[in-house]
């Protein structure tokens, strides 16, 4: 009623036409149309959940918890046995290496770009780091296979193996296609994620804190170390978790560099040994599957991967929203 009056004020002619009514339904239609389209997210989630749960049902029914904890992987008919445990561990180990190497590098980059770099350098260098995220995974894999793995082999793996080969995690003869190489390529690949979020977190630290710290005679590094990083620590933690999520799900580069081991041989007992992550197992083996049960095993590994990735990302999601609420409190 009110809206009608208002309309006639502005468009004296519009009330003459039945168009007014259509316009009202137009709004109604539009709102509901986009609301339905927005449900696409729910649909994708639902389809994924359905395909993965029904697809993995055969293998889970057959092996139960043995599918998760088992280490054997044998598709030969009549003697089939599938266990995902080595790949779960392989995923954790490579992601761990990625964080161990990638997080300090990312933090260094973020700190340098926000706190230290001359103004003229900030934008172009920041852009270069962002470009790392644009390179497709398969090209990381190609470069890793023909270039990077020989750097690692000659300058890192062989020296470490020569002097520290007696430590179990460095045992074996390295040849560059192993958990360590896969972890290192992941480290490079998570840098843009972790660095760009950390950069935002560090930029969001109020200047008054830096000034207070400088005023009591702190050096630049002390201001960063004791004040900036400490104030932004929960945000940086969120960045690290998101980096972990990225590392866990990354497929192609890892599949090309990890050495493609299966079964008990894929247990990550040494960093210089071929291994397998959940994602790389699926990429390397899915098309080779010959039986329904074997396909189901790959789908089952996909389900475990999805659950792990969901746990990490949902965790990061809650963490980040909570952090921003807490931070809001501090600032106000």
């Amino acid at each position: 009623m009110q809206s009608h009056r208002w309309k006639t004020l502005n468009h004296p002619t519009s009330s003459k036409f039945f168009g007014t009514k259509i316009k009202v339904t137009g709004d109604f239609l539009f709102k509901n149309l986009v609301a339905i389209v927005a449900a696409s997210a729910l649909v994708i989630l639902f389809i994924t959940a359905y395909v993965l749960s029904t697809g993995s049902a055969p293998v889970v029914e057959r092996f139960g918890s043995g599918f998760f904890f088992g280490t054997a992987w044998n598709p030969v008919e009549g003697r089939e046995i599938f266990g995902a445990f080595p790949y779960v561990l392989g995923t954790l180990v490579t992601s761990g290496i990625a964080l161990f190497i990638g997080v300090p590098l990312s933090l260094g980059i973020a700190i340098f770009l926000v706190e230290m770099a001359p103004k003229a350098l900030r934008v172009p260098v920041g852009y270069l780091v962002e470009l790392l995220a644009a390179v497709p995974s398969v090209i990381y894999g190609l470069w890793g296979l023909f270039v990077f793995r020989f750097w690692l082999l000659n300058y890192v793996e062989i020296p470490i193996s020569t002097y520290f080969g007696w430590i179990p995690i460095f045992s074996g003869t390295p040849f560059g296609l192993d958990l360590f190489t896969a972890g290192c390529i992941l480290a490079i690949m998570i840098i843009p994620t972790v660095a760009s979020i950390s950069k935002e977190v560090i930029s969001a630290v109020p200047n008054s804190i830096r000034e207070g710290a400088y005023s009591i005679g702190a050096t630049k590094w002390e201001v960063i170390r004791h004040w900036v990083l400490s104030y932004g620590r929960s945000g940086i933690f969120g960045a690290v978790i998101l980096g972990l999520g990225r590392a866990v799900g990354e497929t192609m580069a890892v599949a090309m560099l990890i050495g493609n081991a299966t079964g008990p041989a894929a247990m990550p007992t040494s960093l210089f040994k071929p291994g397998q992550t959940m994602a790389s197992l699926i990429a390397n083996g899915f098309l080779e599957a010959t039986s329904k049960l074997e396909v189901s095993a790959y789908v089952g590994v996909g389900l475990i991967l999805l659950l792990l990735s969901l746990m990490i990302n949902v965790g990061a999601h809650f963490l980040v929203t909570r952090i921003f609420k807490v931070k809001g409190g501090i600032v106000e």
Binding site: G55, L242, G249, E250, T251, G302, S309
Partner: peptide
């Protein structure tokens, strides 16, 4: 959450 899905899992979904 979907933006962080492992892409290989999305492949399995479309496969199914």
């Amino acid at each position: 959450i979907l933006t962080e899905f492992p892409s290989i899992v999305v492949g399995i979904t479309a496969y199914g």
